[in-house]
Structure formats: C-alpha cells, structure tokens
Design a protein around this nucleic acid. Structure first.
Length: 833
RNA sequence: GCGAGAGUGGCGGAACUGGCAGACGCGCUGGACUUAGGAUCCAGUGGGGCAACCCAUGGGGGUUCAACUCCCCCCUCUCGCACCA
C-alpha cells in the first residue's frame, strides 16, 4: 500500500539501524562501578520471554530508556540492565502443544525479543544480560534456599493449598485472584498436599512498617500491600466448654471491649475441635452433612458477599468468661479456618455479620456501647461511645475498654493481646518441570537433607517427558531422582518439585550488579555500590506479587548478612496500560497493535515519542495511529528544518558576548525556559508528556523566529540563535528519540555522541526579564493586560491599572473597595456598589 | 461494603505552593502551493452572541479579592480487597 511507503518521510529506516549498530559496537552503555560519580540504577521489570514484545513492553522500556539516557546526560553513572524471567509455565505448555523443548522455545524467544528491543533503540548494558533458567543463575537461588531451610525460613508442610487444576500445580495466595488462577483464570481448588513454604509471615511487621518509609512509591501500591499484609490488633482468649473440663475454644477478636455482649460463639465448619464437641452419632452426621453443604459451594460462591449466612447449632455450650453466662455454639460458613483461630466470639450488637446471623437464628443482642442520639436499632453499632452493660468496663471509651479487657484476661490467665496478619506464608512448590529444582533430598536414614553447597547447582535435567498431567515431570527422570545422600552417602531421592518463578524475580536486580560473579549470588562491593534500585518501573499487576516477594527476599538476604540493605527499590513508577478503542489490547478483541509494525511504518523514534507524549506514564495510554503520525510529523519537521539550515547552523558560533536584538533576546529566553521546563518535568514528576510538548513549543518558536528574523536580526546573531535552539532541542529530545538525535547532531558537525554530552542548563541571565505582562481584573474578571517593569512598586502598578481605558468603565460609578496586587501576575480591582 | 484513584473542548491531555481554564498534539474548517493531496505551508477551532460581553472544569453548597485547585454533601467511572472477626 502506498500509505505505508511515503517518500517524504525522513529516512528513519536508514538511520535507526545505523545508530543501533554504533551503540552496540562501541558498547556505549556498558558501565562499571565508579565511586567518583553518583550512581543511578534504572530498572524496568524484566520480561517473560513469551515470543514477541507487545505495546505494554514498549511503554515500560521506553520510559526506562528515557530516564536512563537522561540521567546519563545529567552526569550519573547509570546502570540500565536487561534480562529474562525465563522459567515458567508457557514454555512447558508450548512443549506439550508443539513438542519443542522448553529450553529451546525459551532461548528462541529471547533471541527474537532481544532483536525487537534493539530495534527500539534501548540503551542497555547487554554485557549484563541474564536469563533465570541458566544454572549459573539459579544455583545461587538454590544456595539461598538451603540457607533459608537451615534457619527455618523455608519449611515443608502438608496443608490445604490453592490448586490450579489447569496448571496442575500449587499457587501462592498472592497468585489467586478472586478465586481464580492469576495466569490461566481457572477456578482454584482447595487441595491438601505437601509443599514448600517461605516464611514471609516472619517479616509481616517489617514489610508493613517500611510501607510508611517508601516515599518514592505510589500510595496505591503501598495501600494494596498494607491491605494484603492485613495487620489487626486484638486479643486471643479461651472460652471453656460447659461440662468438659480442660476443653476450651480459643478465639481471636479485635474488639475485646465488647466481650460482655457475646451471646454466642462460632467455629469454622472445618475447625479441628468440632469432632471433640459433638455429643453423639446423630450430631456427628448432622455436622458431616453441614460440612459437605459448605464444601460444595465453590470458593467463588463463598466469596460472594451479602448472601445469607449458613449455620448449624451444636449441642455443646461454652462459657463467656466475662459474664459467666452459658452461650450456644455454632458452626457457620462466615467464619474462616484460615484466619485468626478459626473461631470467634459473636457480638451481634457491635458486629454487622454477627447481627445478621443473630437475627436469622433468633439469638440475643446486647448493646455494650452507648448509641448516639437518634440511633435506630436496625443494624450493629460499630462506632465509639461509652461502654454499657459491661461490668467493670462500664463508662470507659472503646479504646480504654479494649486495654482494660486485655489486662483482665491476662490477670485471669485466660488470654493475651494478639496481633493477627492476613498474610500467609509463600507457597513456592510447583509440580512442574520448567523451574529451578528444589535442592532437597530425602534419605532413608537421614530424612530430609539439603544439597551440599559444593554440589550446587542441582541442574534441571534436559530429557524429560512433559505431559501436563500426573504430577511433577521430574519424578519420572530416574537419573535425577535417584541420588546420593549428602550427609551419609547412602541412597536418597531428590525433591521433584520446582520453585515458583517469582523466586527468580525476587533477586535478579541484585544479580545485575555483578552478573558473571561465580563466588556467590552477587559481589558484595558491586551490590553495595549499585543498590538500591533508584527507579523501578513496571505494571500495577505486580503491586502485591513480585513487589512484595522482592522486598521480603531483600530482607532475608540482609539477615543472612549478604548485604546491608533494607529495601530493594527506592522509587517505583507504576505505568498504566496501553489500550485501544477503550479496551486493553488483546487478541480476542482484535485491537492489538504490533510494535514491529509501528517501527517499520513510523520508526522507533516516532513510536517512542508518541508513547511518551500521549499520556502521563501512570495513566492508561490510548493508542491512536493518527497520534503516531503526529509524532512522526513533528520529527519530519525538525529533520527538514535542520537540513534546510544545515550550513548556517553548522558554521555558527554560540551567541556572542555582545547585546542581542530584542527579538533575539526574547527567543533566547524561550530556549532557556524550555531547558528549565523539560528538566523539571522529567526530574520532578515524570511528566514526559509536558516535557515533550515544551520541546514542540520550542520548535514552533524556532520556525517563527527563523521566518521573522530574516530582515530584522543581524545574520550572525540569527545563525547563533538558530544553532543554540537546534542544539538544545536535540539534547532535550535525545533521550526520547535517540536515533534522530544522534543523526542530526552528527549532520551538524557536532563532535561525539549526543549521549556523551552534558544536559543543558538554563542561564539565569538569559531568563531574566525586564518587563512582564500582568492581568488586570475587575471583580475577578479579566478586563485587560498591562506590561510593567519587573520589580515595579505596587503603588505604580495599581495606578497604572486604575488608569487603563478598558478598566474605567467597570469602576465608574462604583467604589473601589480594594485593589489586590500580586507582583508579576495580576491586579484585581474589587468594587462595591 | 471497605480502600485507592479519577471526572476539564469532538479526542488524548495542560494549568507549580489558589492568580489569564483549555498549553502541546490529534481531529475538524477555510485558504495557499498543486495535474493531484492522504505531503507541506498559512489562518481558525470550548459554547452562545454581529459586537460589547456572557456562560463553561460531574452536580449542589461554602471559604476567598480570586477556586479545575481548598472545605462539606451528592453523583458517576476505574482499579484493588472482599464474611479477616
């Protein structure tokens, strides 16, 4: 089609590959530690090598590349690495579907995607490239696993876990979204199975605390992490079972102050104490039936709120230790075994769920907090107030009563204060092939034994049958399974599960600091120099998953004394999605835009420019082809201008020491103002879209000046200013559009690469103005404008404003009540009639 | 339900600690150059009005000389969590 082959576009198809070749050959973006320069570690979340990059990738990596190049020009020693999150299920599924080995599939994809990234002109230090499926990478992860195992931070347990029937593997809690698998969207089942866990709950408090000390993170992400950790403060205490000495139900509550209003108690249906509580076979049968009824409901139904609460009343009764009263016991589906103790005291007066249940079952409701004036008893009251009906707590506030109730429990020896977290330990076993093997062996004599450090890595075997069914594929590889016990030398079997791929991504940022180091996970000095990551960039989908795991892992490594570092990412930028026609790009919607296609038709620079220009980074980006064309148009205009004035600009010197014409001064001020605007837009708040619009304005002003200055400005001055404007525009635009930047820089005969230049700075003397236009308002409405000298006294501004022809009709016949003068901005004349 | 964020022209989006609402771009309209225009250049482009002016930042109140910006109430949308005791 002719549309795609317009002859009048600048030759991006020649210059883009040319400069990519230059950068690659000269290894321009290779870095080493240099204590003499401030460092800047710029990192974008590394991709899963799915085969082809998509527009989401283009967006993150363009943002990262802009920042990396910008910081480089600002004088920083910039680390900007790239690698591959190379383990994972899609490779294995491809093997099942096409018979290609996951390793082959993955490496091919990496090669393809690397080429695609190169075509976008990314400034990576490719010498630091890593792939997590490399044994030289995962051996260190296995070592850390062993260290964690030794310290009890990695443990194996049989428990009820999330099981994805389609992926045929365990999922971590973080990987279940509304009851569905995060990857394939299948409904997740509960399954009792043995698996390995990382004790992230040991770090719950610290992970939460540091949420308040990460000012460079978006509040949204911190909130999601806080919610996920889910700290709640309260008390735990025992309810003795009537007539069964020694038997008690332990409950957790955040409202110990309301204990006097406890009119019943509830256990989760699967609570282990239930068997001991049932009186006879008949009740046992009813319990079994109830449990079945609850279990039949899928996880998803169970999650759906506002449906009636099912309950079963037990024959056994318990004692409210605060009142001594006997209260009924229930099993109910609204109490979850997975949280707290799996049992609650029910206080329908002050808890809405208990209220609803009590109403359904005709149970007593006692108010223990004084209701406010006019309160209608149609729901539980959860607000503050004076305690009532609460014995020794009466008259106290809710907070005071909480403390007093806990003190009483402690004194009685039946309870204690307690903090509960929603966060569960991280289940990392995957019953799949394409992952890092878990370095544990099972010896008949010695039991569970970690592999010796010198035997690591435990290499993933190549020849394996992958069917996607029937458990861990490694179990079928005899040469892998049958091994020697590292302790006694006897026969042992290897663990056949692999680790969650999120384990690899929990420390890759550390590996980049010394990617070829073979004495350990990372070289300490290099990691201490580069870490933390100064700017991390990635999608919001990892707000809890990867970002929480990486924080946890960093703290573990710190506690293993491998590094002095509390948090891995100083600042985080969560970029929005790329959407088209109002929806996320997806094959099924048919609205996918192929980056390669864009590069072919408009060039990498235009693609990058549009991506950064169309929306601020944290917002969703609506992809429009006319927008990319606009970006391309702008670059064309710049290209044509530089070529039209090539000789004039090349030969020109900088603006001379002599005074400039008035037009020249004004234009020069625009140049320097643009430098200021772009610098602060990028540096302060990542407003790349407005930074780019500032450069566009400069180029517009450049065209105007070129046209208007011919007869009015001396030849030498004109050439000098055109030169300064073009040089500045190229420097400011370089990080966004590096290819055209380098090319025009070279065409103008400027020495060296654009990216070895220093970022321009604005000259305060040039920015200074003698006169400024201010707005004159009457009663808050703009009536005219006035040019006044900078620093003119308020009195004279006021008089000038009042004397304006456009102002007088508005104040004639009225009284001027007040004149507000905001220096350099406006005058507001306030009248009263 | 709880939490976070967002509502500004036909569209994407600007507007710093309150100070000219709509920068920049897309689209659109008219014109120039042209065999041609989907290239390029020039002019215009929130609504109303011939104009002076008036009206406009989801809606309603308020604070202020001055409100997209601050406060209160309400509406809508997006995202996250969702019976967490």
């Amino acid at each position: 089609m002719a549309i795609d082959d317009r002859q009048d576009r600048y030759p991006f198809r020649d210059i883009e590959p040319k400069w990519q070749g230059v950068w690659e050959k000269s290894k321009q973006f290779r870095v080493t530690e240099d204590p003499g320069r401030p460092k800047y570690y710029c990192l974008e979340m590394f991709p899963y090598p799915s085969g082809r990059i998509h527009m989401g990738h283009v967006r993150v990596y363009t943002i990262g590349d802009l920042l990396a190049r910008f910081k480089l020009m600002r004088g920083f020693n910039v680390l900007h690495p790239m690698g591959w999150d190379a383990f994972g299920l899609p490779a294995e599924n491809a093997a099942i579907d096409n018979g290609v080995h996951p390793a082959v599939w993955t490496l091919e994809n990496i090669a393809n995607m690397k080429t695609q990234l190169a075509r976008l002109g990314m400034s990576y230090d490719w010498d630091r490239e890593l792939a997590t499926c490399d044994p030289a990478y995962y051996r260190w992860e296995q070592l850390i696993f062993v260290r964690m195992f030794e310290r009890g931070l990695a443990y194996k347990q049989r428990s009820k876990v999330n099981w994805c029937p389609s992926c045929q593997t365990i999922l971590a809690n973080e990987q279940v979204e509304a009851g569905r698998c995060w990857r394939c969207d299948s409904e997740v089942e509960a399954k009792e199975i043995e698996g390995w866990f990382f004790k992230i709950t040991d770090y719950a408090e610290e992970l939460l605390d540091w949420c308040d000390r990460l000012p460079g993170w978006p509040e949204r992400v911190l909130t999601m992490q806080r919610n996920w950790i889910g700290r709640s403060e309260g008390a735990e205490f025992d309810l003795p079972v009537v007539g069964r000495s020694g038997l008690a139900i332990t409950i957790f509550t955040t409202r110990p102050d309301t204990a006097f209003g406890m009119t019943y108690a509830v256990l989760a249906p699967e609570h282990p104490l239930v068997d001991a509580l049932v009186a006879d076979e008949e009740e046992r049968a009813r319990v079994a039936a109830f449990r079945q009824e609850v279990a039949r409901e899928s996880e998803i139904e169970r999650l759906a709120a506002d449906r009636p609460k099912r309950g079963l009343r037990l024959g056994a009764r318990a004692i409210n230790p605060f009142t001594g009263a006997e209260i009924p016991l229930f099993l109910a589906d609204y109490v979850l075994m997975g949280y707290g103790t799996g049992a609650i005291m029910a206080v329908p007066g002050e808890d809405q769920r208990d209220w609803e249940f009590a109403k359904q079952h005709g149970l007593d409701i006692i108010a223990t907090v004084k209701r406010p004036e006019g309160w209608e008893d149609t729901q539980a009251y959860t607000g503050d107030g004076a305690k009532i009906n609460s014995g020794f707590l009466d008259g106290l506030s809710v907070d005071e009563a909480k403390r007093a109730a806990i003190d009483w429990l402690v004194a009685q020896g039946i309870g204690r204060s307690k903090i509960n977290y929603r966060l569960r330990d991280w289940g990392i076993s995957r019953q799949r092939y394409w992952g890092a093997p878990i370095p544990i062996l099972y010896c008949e004599k010695c039991g569970m034994v970690p592999e010796r450090e010198e035997n690591l890595p435990v290499v993933l075997p190549q020849n394996v049958q992958i069917s996607g069914k029937g458990g861990s594929p490694l179990a079928g590889v005899a040469s892998f399974v049958n091994a020697t016990c590292p302790r006694c030398g006897g026969k042992a079997r290897r663990d056949t599960d692999t680790m969650d791929t999120f384990v690899e991504s929990s420390w890759y940022f550390l590996r980049y600091c010394s990617p070829h180091y073979d004495q350990g996970m990372f070289e300490r000095a290099a990691a201490e120099y580069w870490m933390p990551v100064d700017q991390y960039i990635g999608g919001i989908e990892h707000a809890v998953l990867h970002l929480l795991y990486a924080r946890f892992f960093t703290k573990v490594l710190r506690d293993l004394h491998l590094i002095t570092l509390d948090e891995p990412f100083r600042a985080l930028l969560s970029q929005g999605m790329v959407i088209k026609d109002g929806a996320k790009m997806s094959k099924s919607k048919g609205n996918v835009v192929d980056p390669d296609d864009m590069i072919r038709r408009f060039g990498a620079d235009a693609t990058r420019l549009f991506t950064l220009f169309a929306a601020p980074p944290e917002r969703d980006l609506e992809w429009t082809e006319s927008g990319v064309e606009g970006a391309s148009r702008f670059l064309n205009r710049l290209w044509r201008f530089v070529h039209a004035h090539r000789e004039e600009i090349s030969a020109a010197g900088p603006p001379g020491p002599g005074p400039l014409s008035e037009a020249g001064r004004a234009f020069r001020r625009v140049i320097h103002e643009t430098v200021e605007r772009v610098t602060s837009d990028v540096e302060r708040d990542f407003h790349f879209n407005t930074a780019i619009s500032a450069v566009m304005e400069l180029v517009n002003a450049l065209h105007d000046f070129e046209r208007d200055s011919l007869d009015q400005v001396a030849r030498e001055e004109r050439a000098a200013l055109l030169r300064e404007a073009v040089d500045t525009a190229l420097l400011l635009l370089g990080p966004v559009c590096p290819h055209i930047g380098e090319e025009l820089w070279t065409i103008l005969g400027r020495p060296g690469s654009l990216f070895t230049q220093r970022w321009p700075t604005a000259d305060p003397a040039v920015l200074r103005r003698e006169a400024v236009e201010i707005v004159v308002q009457v009663d808050g409405r703009v009536r005219t404008r006035l040019t006044v000298e900078v620093g003119a006294p308020e009195q004279s501004i006021r008089e000038a404003a009042l004397a304006e022809d456009k102002v007088r009709p508005w104040i004639d016949g009225r009284q001027v009540a007040k004149v507000v003068v905001v220096p350099g901005r406006l005058v507001n004349i306030v009248t009263s009639s």
